[in-house]
Amino acid sequence: MLDLYLPIAEVSVSAPLLVVLGAVVGFISGLFGIGGGFLMTPVLVFLGIPPAVAVASEANHVAASSTSGVISYTRRRAVDFKMGAVLAAGGAVGAIVGVEIFRWLLLLGQADLVVSLSYLVFLGVIGGLMLVESVQAIVRRRSGQTTGPRRDRRPVWLYGLPLKVRFPRSRLYISVIPPIALGIFVGVLSAIMGVGGGFILVPAMVYILRMPAAVVVGTSLFQIIITTSLASLLQAGRNQTVDIVLATLLLIGGVIGAQFGARASARFRAEELRALLAIIVLAVGINMGIGLFLTPEEPFVQISGAG
């Protein structure tokens, strides 16, 4: 049959299902410039794959679909490599710190709680804010109002900080401190939540760094490749939790889906895309978080890290 036994996850799963899942998440990844880990990791856990293996192997899938997507954006000159590198440098530091925090939480037995809370809080807040903003933008446009001049009132602190660097592709001249801090923050979260962090980076680049919308998605994908490749390597090297068969099945679908996603993104308006992403982000956040408030059917849970 088409079921495959995964050598590291040590469970048997349907291979076509994984390819299709990879393709769907890859499409979303290419469309929005997010890794898609926040969607895929919960699904893999639901399929019975041990969470540690799901998180580590998913990083590999995200690296693949982001590579597939980023090349399309590069051709459209829609990647700010300099900004991406700065974000990724912060992300690498954050990921290393985050992996240590995660190990500590695992030992405490509170990893589940922190993961669920992180999903609820970050996805809820970001999804909510993005939904409100994008719906307002859509309503403004539909009601015939001119969108008005782009709000170029950048926060003072962006200009007040030292170590200013020019980012020509983004038409920015700002301190490197905010992007590095953002990278670190996203890196920590990505290690804890098992995600690439695109869902935080995309809105942060738009609303905090005020980067032009055209380069946001490509730049986000570029920085995701670097951090997820590093995360995947660290997970394999330290924890032996990357399942190469699982990752390969997911990325076969993922790289193809990402191509269609990247193409489709040109056909939508930016605010419509953001509204759609906001809804997905909110739904996943609520879904992950709601379990914290419902009386569990089974009061006992097995947690990894024994022995």
Binding site: T67, T248, I256
Partner: peptide
Amino acid sequence: ASVMIALAAGWAAS
């Protein structure tokens, strides 16, 4: 190896 597979697959699809 797994990272290389991922990057190569992404590049190949593109």
